[in-house]
Structures are given as C-alpha cells and as structure tokens.
Amino acid sequence: MNILLVMIPLSILLLIGAGIAFFWAVDHDQFDDLDTPRLLPLLDDPDAIDAESAEEPPREAPPP
C-alpha cells in the first residue's frame, strides 16, 4: 500500500494545480463570455482579411 503515499499526494498536487489554473482563467476573463468564442473557428484567417483591406491602416492583433 506504500504506493498510496506517492499517488495521493500527487493527486492532491494535481488538484491544487487545476484549482490555481481555473482561478487564473476566471480572473483573466476566460469565462466572462461563453458565446462569442464558438464563432471564431468559423471565420477566415484574420491575417488574410487584413491583406485584402489595403485601404485600412495596419491593425494590431485583436486582444485575446
């Protein structure tokens, strides 16, 4: 049963890690908008669009 002494602390560490990652994600706006991101994969590559619209000034990449 000594394996428990390794596995359980490991699972606790993973749990804490997951918790920290989740808190970070919530604090960095990842869960504020759950509607828009699902649309993004449907779009053309934004860089390709930039190249086409030559009249516009160069754009910064939109913030994540």
């Binding site: 000034p57 754009r59 939109p62 913030p63």
Partner: peptide
C-alpha cells in the same frame, strides 16, 4: 480592435 491605440475590448 482595428483602431490604433485601442488596447483591450471586452464585450
């Protein structure tokens, strides 16, 4: 986001 100087937009 296309406007120069805009840092962050969150809707």
């Amino acid at each position: 986001g296309a406007l120069p100087g805009v840092l962050h937009v969150q809707v």
